[in-house]
Design a protein around this nucleic acid. Structure first.
Lengths: 213, 213, 213, 213
DNA sequence: GATGAATGAGCGTTCATTCAT
DNA sequence: AATGAATGAACGCTCATTCAT
């Protein structure tokens, strides 16, 4: 809930602030990030910052929300497509490919997502971040729900748990890709996407159908 | 590398310090934890603490090492057993059952493991924590290696990546169990273990064999 | 490089801070001085101090710079005068007389200069203090260079060494004057000045001319 | 005034302690030196150290005293010689040559001497260091006194001041030599000695005789 | 609307010294 | 004669936040 004042700011200034904040939060997590340094990097006055945002957490929310809107666009299109029903995993692979490209271009966004996880989950879910958090979960959750409807995704475990598991491996992949950046980048990106989707599919396929690839 | 002096302390005092530290590190991570508060909670003087441990990181290492030694016992026995070859996934399930029981009894230990991940991986791997970190990875890695030898675990992706993925879902399960503690505890624990092992098996089974359960 | 904020402060507050710092640094040197005590003596909040200055060293620089600017005025005028050529040692004596008067009035300034010497010379020369340090050396160095041009100062040893030697005896004189303050003050100040200049002249005169006084 | 207990220690242990202390004090000065680190470097127990020495200052005194005894030997021989009367400055040059050789071999000793100067002079003079301090001054003072008797040293300024001035330039030379170590070492050491003695002579010669070299 | 001066609790760490054994 | 556990004040510095203007 950034104050309306912030929305009214010149877009360039908005961008400057949000970029500085994204960098810092991505690099050091929420607790580790220094509000002072964000302010300095953004070139804004301290008072102004507290005029635009309630506090550090409020800024964090705003930043995370903006970031998640990018995702929204990415995944949103898929949800409107009917291809999800006819060829769920094929469509999913397409999305994953785009997502992978996006992640390589915007590693800060991924880091931001990770910093979300470091916070007390209870607080995140019910606090001002809950909305964003739910959104993130929602997209992949909604896609998986569509998969369930199409019979391509298991329904023998809670959807929420399934989503959590997928996020877990997703992050593990991210970490591994980052750690093995050079081999990864010089390797075949397409192979990476397929490897990732394969693991997702293994986890999410209905019981008895894991082999059908 | 806690100083030898600490080992010589009265066990109760040792325990008091270690417990306070474990709580704090588990709750707030390494960076977030306040050494001052650990000291206060433990009821020790500041000087004494720096007499026992080099610094915050040294205390953290000690705490983590103690915690990991419990794991070592748990997993170590399995590695000595030959059952891993004859019935890999069955044996793995037994271990997982014990591990789950342990995790329910000592949730701080799990949180501690998570706090390890928050640190700069490069630093962790080569610093004083490297030993512990390697151990953790090693146990599950060594078990999976045995599984590969037995033909029960895939070898088409790097072992290190496989381990990372399993840790990822493992943590996701942990989080989910914690968040749904009440439903979980009152539910059938055995079902949970089976669910977990199933996902592990889905991920780690050789290609073309995912169905064989 | 004190932050601009400090310059904007009410002069009285500026003075209070600078005085407290000067006293402390003069009395205990850079390392020995307690920033906390300076803060307390100045009656400022800790945060404020770190708002005005980057750190302890930054405050030290500021204090030293202010002090050196007094010197600059003193010696600067002499460098503009042509009397240095026509009557080098006579002019030098005039300057020394003014300098002596100043030193008696502001003994802290002398102590401050001494504290500069206690720091790692390499660090001082290239760090933020370099400018000030160079200035100090420069003034007496430039005067001596003029003396060389006028044939009143030896050029058979490096100018830098000559300056160092003069500073060495200068400080020895300072120390002695301070230690024998009472005898000194009640004695004939003029005699002191002449004694000092005589020693400077003995050291700096060209070989074979030491006697010409 | 190190306790008698220290004297009774095995010589090796005495040496180990004194060496560790000399290094630390020489490197960081009295205030800057860490008693803890000296103790650790010496491999002695903390209690033992406080059993041998009253406190940090007591150890410092002991170290300085030992160091000064080396000087004593150096200069003592000269005082017994009658050559001081017949050829004062020639004899002085011989001593200076030996002193220079010693300084190059034992730079810590020089550093130790410098650390003495950093202390509050009043405290040094009347405190337990007074004796040592006086000794140092005394040797060069006594030599100069002999020079006065022989008519080779001026008596128109207080002997104490003369000694202070000579120490001042001596230290300036030291500093300069250290800073220009490479040029200095590869240069002609004999020339350095003569340069130094020349400056001493310029300062100390009786008025009207400075030229006689 | 917006500024930036000011706060003070808190951080991890080092220190010389004491004292029961 | 010797140990080493224990102390707690002090260190330089960062922090998110407030508020008079």
């Amino acid at each position: 809930m950034p104050r309306a004042r912030f929305e009214r700011l010149e877009p360039e200034k908005q961008a400057r602030i949000l970029e500085a904040a994204t960098e810092e939060f991505a690099a050091r997590g929420f607790e580790g990030a220094s509000y002072n340094q964000i302010i300095e990097k953004a070139g804004v006055s301290k008072g102004a910052m507290y005029y635009y945002f309630d506090d550090k957490m409020d800024l964090f929310c705003t930043v995370v929300k903006r970031a998640s809107s990018h995702m929204t666009e990415l995944w949103g299109a898929a949800l409107d497509s009917e291809a999800l029903e006819s060829d769920f995993w094929g469509t999913f692979e397409d999305i994953a490919r785009k997502q992978a490209a996006f992640a390589f271009e915007h590693p800060e966004m991924m880091a931001l997502g990770k910093s979300l996880m470091e916070l007390d989950p209870a607080l995140v879910r019910q606090g001002p971040l809950g909305e964003v958090y739910a959104l993130t979960r929602t997209w992949i959750g909604r896609i998986m729900a569509r998969g369930q409807a199409a019979g391509a995704v298991r329904d023998d475990i809670p959807l929420e748990l399934l989503v959590a598991l997928l996020q877990g491996v997703g992050e593990a992949f991210d970490r591994w890709f980052v750690a093995h950046f050079e081999e990864t980048m010089s390797g075949d990106p397409e192979a990476l996407v397929q490897m990732t989707v394969d693991v997702f599919r293994r986890i999410a396929s209905p019981a008895g159908q894991e082999v059908r690839r």
